[in-house]
Amino acid sequence: MDFKRIVIFSGHYGSGKTNIAVNVAHHLKKTRPRVAIADIDIVNPYFRTEDSREELERDGIRLIASPFAGSNVDLPALPDEVYAITDDIGLSAVVDVGGDDRGALALGRWREGLMAEGDWEMLMVVNCFRPLTRDADSALEVMAEIQAAAGMPFTGVVNNSNIGDDTAPRDVLSSDGYAREICRRAGLPLKMTTAKAELIPYLEGKIENLFPLRLQDKIR
């Protein structure tokens, strides 16, 4: 799957942005020499890219994250290193934005640089099993709020519809219509459909542009 130099993931909180961002960074590292992942979440102090630091660094991916992520400091601060994503044009960057319009506000700081640069894409992550984005109407509402806050337009949609450990292939298959309706009404392409790696064999040939996800460990 092909990506622009800068890939921005945004969407409703809890839609799976961080997991997807980490997986896409690993994917890019296979073909690109210098890859960074920037966590610019100013909303939620939990479930951060920081949790994957070890595996990212093992793969030679540079992690740009708040020094406070995962600590007791609940402060919406961003490191100056984030400017590398626009200033260093040899760097391939995945940007993990905080949830909803409040999270997207942080992106406004880099809007001008990104617009001037041009080689970027901003992807809206959606999940029809999340209560506040269950149908196309509500997902489009969240999408409009994010675009207004960021001052930037989305360029595509990522369908990450899942119900955690309970996700079955039919859940992903049945969500395709939901994702396509969002795309049709927003006038955007469906960039990819993401699913945990074990489900991919059941989806191949039935859904286009599949992208397998390896999930972070969690408490049982």
């Binding site: 809890g14 999940n127 029809c128 099993f129 999340r130 209560p131 269950r134 899942n162 049945s174």
Partner: peptide, 15 residues
């Protein structure tokens, strides 16, 4: 759309 939803604990309390 589905019988089950994927929720954060805090959202589950609110709903």
């Amino acid at each position: 759309m589905a019988d089950k939803v994927l929720m954060k604990g805090n959202e589950a309390i609110a709903e």
